[in-house]
């Protein structure tokens, strides 16, 4: 059993990692074919995980409804919409022709059917509204928290105000120096810090990949 639970997954991970690295650096048609093939495998696996994701989501919300936990009504709503959208997609009813095309025929985005109606009338405006509201929360947070309590906070406040003003065309009308200062802050101090963080993340990724390759990091097998 230890072979299937431990040695086989580790060997596969190691072999695939070596093949993956080699295929990038070796310009040979075998490498190209390997890459093409693995990319298809990734997509197939991605499709399978959609089912697992849907199952997991429904299970979590089913338990929430059964136990009548706080906010279980939202879970019921999720079920209602899930069933409605799936039903509309399976029935595939075209209001223009008055015919049901069934689940096997591809849906056209221009068709006036249930899925398109739900998408255009509910999902599109709802997701746009949700994102728009973020702006108001950010403004409120900025107003309430930007206080020059210390020298460092004052420096941060001044930098933030310059960048905030530099991001709109009105700043150039006031003074050409404002967009210039804003760009300087973004392209020099800000960029330097971001690059340092990015390098750190990249080195960390290499370290984690090596740990997976050599079987030191085994959490993907369900262990610690």
């Amino acid at each position: 059993m230890r072979f299937f639970k431990f040695y086989l997954p580790i060997s596969l991970a190691f072999a695939m990692a070596i093949l993956g690295i080699t295929s990038v650096f070796v310009p040979h048609h075998y490498s190209d074919n390997f890459q093409k093939e693995t990319v298809v495998w990734f997509r197939v696996l991605g499709g399978v995980t959609m089912f697992i994701g849907a199952y997991s989501l429904l299970k979590v919300h089913f338990n929430r409804i059964r136990r009548q936990q706080k906010g279980w009504g939202y879970s019921a709503l999720l079920y209602a919409f899930f069933i409605t959208v799936i039903t509309c997609a399976i029935v595939n009813y075209d209001t223009a022709t008055g015919k049901s095309k069934g689940p096997l025929e591809a849906r056209n985005m221009a068709t006036k059917d249930g899925v398109n109606w739900i998408f255009n009338a509910i999902q599109r405006p709802a997701s746009a509204t949700q994102y728009s509201l973020l702006g108001f929360f950010i403004c409120s947070a900025a107003y309430r928290t930007f206080r020059a309590k210390t020298v460092e906070a004052a420096v941060l406040l001044v930098a933030a105000l310059i960048v905030m003003l530099g991001q709109v065309p009105l700043s150039a009308t006031i003074s050409g120096a404002i967009p210039w200062m804003s760009n300087w802050l973004l392209n020099w101090p800000n960029m330097a810090v971001k690059r340092a963080i990015l390098f750190g993340i990249c080195v960390g990724s290499v370290g984690t990949s090596l740990r997976v390759m050599f079987g030191i990091e085994r959490s993907y097998m369900g262990g610690d």
Binding site: C139, A142, Y143, F146, R147, A148, K149, L157, L161, M164, L165, Q167, V168, P169, L170
Partner: peptide
């Protein structure tokens, strides 16, 4: 659309500056 955004930025900046002046 950049004009409303410009005005909103200016209003927010003025509000932050006013709030800080009160605090100081």
């Amino acid at each position: 659309w950049m004009t409303p955004q410009s005005i909103a930025h200016v209003v927010l900046i003025v509000a932050i500056l006013f709030g800080n002046a009160c605090y100081l």
